[in-house]
Simulated scan of single mutants.
Amino acid sequence: MKSDTSTSAAPLKGLGPGPLRSSEPARALPAVSPAVHLLEEAADLLVVHLDFPAALETCERAWQNLTEEPSNGTTVEVKCSLCVVGIQALAEMDRWREVLSWVLRYYRLPAELPPRVLELCILLYSKMQEPAAVLDVADAWLQDPDNQGLPEYGSLAELHLLRVLLPLGRLSEAEELAVGSPVFSEAQRAAVLQAVLAARQRQHMQETLNSQEPQKLSQEGPFSRKLLSLLMLLRRLWGSAVSHLLSQPFRKGLLVALILCLLVLRFDPASPSSLPFLYQLAQLFRRIQKATLARLYPLALQD
């Protein structure tokens, strides 16, 4: 009986400091939300099974369950985690362009986005070289007074400056954000301003090159036109020469000359050994004649 008593009391350890009396009600563990189960299922589908459509569909079902639950700290964290899983699933399916619209379906306003979700959106669109898609959302989030007191505000402001404003060439906005925002430390502000200065120098150099290009083309214009006209003239001369060489009368004259040459060499009383070069040339002409006649009169040669 002692063993039975100790075994039945074991699960009750940790529920309270003292022994459980029969007059006290049993304290039940907090019920786990169905959205939490769906979040775990979506994460398992994403990471383990690599079933990205099913993971996205599970996230959407979890969102529907969260609308029926009261808002608290757990609900906020589950919403953020569901967005992270959904963003990764859309990116894996090469549907990354839908990420921002999909997230804003549930948060409605850009200022309501969790910092982690906004960070993922900036990194994703920056990596895909379309930072303009997230520009307005990031600006609205950074300008919201409630977000400026968050601990993640400084890192997101720096990320927005380096990954969105500078690639888009919005150097004045980037410099204004770096100087006017109190969240940057002196080291961060100096590094950001150095990056803005380097981007401005590159932009100025590119504008200088673009302005010099039409002038260079205008200076080289007459020479280029002369060279082009000369090339066209050479092309016409070459075409006329080739057409003349391939014309029917010229080919007939060449054939007659070859036949006469062969007749002269064939009835030449001189010995072939005394004229080795002419003998080899005659042999070559005979091969050419045989190949030509074989193409023109194949049946007669076979007979």
Rank of each mutant, 00 (worst) to 15 (best):
D4A: 06
S6K: 11
T7V: 10
A10H: 10
P11H: 03
L12H: 08
L15Q: 07
G16R: 12
G16M: 03
G18H: 08
G18I: 03
G18T: 08
L20I: 07
R21L: 15
S22Q: 14
P25H: 03
A26I: 07
A28K: 09
A31R: 07
V32M: 15
V36Q: 01
H37R: 05
H37D: 02
L39T: 00
D44T: 11
D44K: 08
L46M: 12
L46K: 01
L46V: 05
D51V: 02
P53C: 09
P53G: 11
A55N: 06
E57P: 01
T58G: 06
R61K: 14
R61G: 08
R61N: 12
A62M: 06
N65K: 05
G73Y: 03
T74I: 04
T75I: 01
V76Q: 10
E77N: 03
V78I: 13
V78T: 12
C80I: 09
S81I: 01
C83G: 04
V84H: 04
G86Q: 07
A89K: 04
E92K: 08
M93L: 15
W96S: 05
R97P: 12
L100I: 14
S101Q: 14
W102D: 06
W102I: 05
V103N: 00
Y106Q: 15
A111L: 05
P114M: 00
I122W: 12
L124W: 03
S126V: 05
M128E: 15
M128K: 15
P131L: 08
A132H: 09
V134G: 04
L135M: 13
P145K: 05
D146M: 04
Q148L: 02
Y153D: 05
Y153F: 14
S155M: 13
L156Q: 01
H160T: 12
L161F: 07
L162F: 01
L165F: 07
L166Q: 02
A174M: 11
G180K: 06
S181F: 00
P182V: 07
V183N: 00
F184V: 01
F184A: 02
S185K: 09
A187Q: 09
R189H: 06
A190H: 06
V192S: 10
V192P: 00
L193A: 11
Q194S: 13
V196H: 04
A199N: 07
R200S: 00
L209C: 10
L209W: 13
L209G: 09
Q212G: 04
Q212H: 06
K216T: 12
S218T: 07
S218I: 06
P222Y: 13
P222Q: 14
R225T: 12
K226M: 12
L228Q: 13
S229R: 13
L231Q: 10
L234R: 11
G239M: 01
S240F: 11
S240P: 02
A241D: 00
V242Q: 06
L246M: 03
Q248I: 07
R251G: 10
K252A: 12
G253F: 11
L254G: 04
A257V: 09
L260V: 06
C261H: 00
D268T: 02
P269M: 07
P269F: 07
P269T: 08
A270N: 08
S271R: 03
L278P: 03
Y279I: 00
Q280S: 11
F285E: 08
F285G: 10
R286H: 02
R287Q: 15
T292K: 14
L293C: 10
A294S: 13
L296Q: 13
L301D: 11
